[in-house]
Amino acid sequence: MEPVIDPKSDSNDVRRKTKAEQDKANSKLAIKMIWVAAGSLLFAFALVPLYDVLCSITGLNGKTDNNAATLNKAKVDESRSVTVQFTAAVMPGLGWNFYPKQTSITLHPGQIETVLFEAKNITSQIVTGQAIPSVTPGVASVYLKKIECFCFVNQSLKPGETKIMPLRFFIDPAIPKDVSEMTLSYSFFEAAKK
């Protein structure tokens, strides 16, 4: 597909553009392309809310719903049970000890249970922390319903103070049949300074 070149011919159907025509067309197209680039910069920031929406629908990132679930009157599904394991971590910068009082619980979907976590401030200052939950597998995260959780608000501990913090939750009976085990992990961060 190589072009045949004839520099001498000036046939009627093709014509060279004048300099002015050329410059005008160039700046027109260039401005359009700048808009495209600006549009994709906007798109990058639009992805942030889009990502959050997508995650709350699909549980893509293992985040649980951080609002108290209304007490569920649905029947307890006694035909099967789910094991929930608990892990706790303290992120760098937070001088706390933090662990679950029990490492796992087996319950029927629909059954309401309470698990206790213990946190201790080992520094000599008042420290505020925020727990961030994450569920593995991600697909199960939307079925973990929390009625009450220490992760809903910041937790403030005085120097040396120990606090027992409850988590009250149930598993939505609509949880897929193949999920029989899930891990709920809490990471305690130093609360971002306002």
């Binding site: 392309m33 495209v36 600006a38 994709s40 910069l41 798109f43 990058a44 992805l47 942030v48």
Partner: peptide, 14 residues
């Protein structure tokens, strides 16, 4: 390039 480089620019700005 014009479709994706601005996304990187946005991400590193965040």
């Amino acid at each position: 390039l014009i479709a994706t480089i601005p996304v990187l620019a946005g991400a590193v700005t965040m």
